[in-house]
Amino acid sequence: MISVIVTYQIKTEFVEQNKINIHNFFSDFKKLDASQFEYKVFIKADGVTFVHHSLYKNEEIQKELLNIPSFLEFQKQRDEIGLNGKPQIEILNLFASSDEKWKK
């Protein structure tokens, strides 16, 4: 199991476009086997900090998701137009889970 948290801030004027881009790649994610991954996006109270938390069964599904054209376009626009600073990427190691599907 692979768990990743990506936290980043967006320029105020790019927030709505970032939300649209996230909805676009989520539409594509919904076409995939959801038992193989979990992907959540949160917005902090400041309205410009986004937190993406993803769980993948394995590297194969992670690579598949990260190479979906709508996800690549989201990243491109975020990084080239909307990003305020650099994203923080954290890799987490699962210690315990109430959900059996994430056990090795």
Rank of each mutant, 00 (worst) to 15 (best):
E100Y: 07
Y56P: 10
I5H: 03
S3Y: 01
V48A: 04
Q77W: 08
K63N: 12
Q75L: 12
K19R: 06
N58S: 14
Y8T: 01
S3T: 09
F95S: 12
I91N: 00
E100P: 06
H23M: 06
T12G: 03
P87Y: 02
D28P: 02
K57L: 13
F37G: 11
P69M: 03
N84M: 04
I2Y: 15
V48M: 00
I43H: 02
G47K: 02
L55E: 15
V48C: 04
Q77S: 10
N67Q: 14
K103V: 09
I61Y: 14
S70N: 11
K44H: 00
G47T: 10
S98W: 04
M1H: 05
S70L: 01
V4N: 12
N58C: 12
E90C: 00
K19A: 07
K44A: 01
K103M: 03
E80N: 09
S3C: 09
Y39R: 03
E59F: 12
H52F: 00
E90A: 12
T12I: 08
V4H: 01
F71V: 11
D99P: 01
K63P: 11
N24H: 05
D28F: 07
G82R: 13
E90V: 11
S35W: 11
T49M: 14
L66V: 03
E90T: 04
Q62V: 00
E80L: 07
Q17T: 15
A96M: 09
L66Q: 08
F25P: 00
V4L: 05
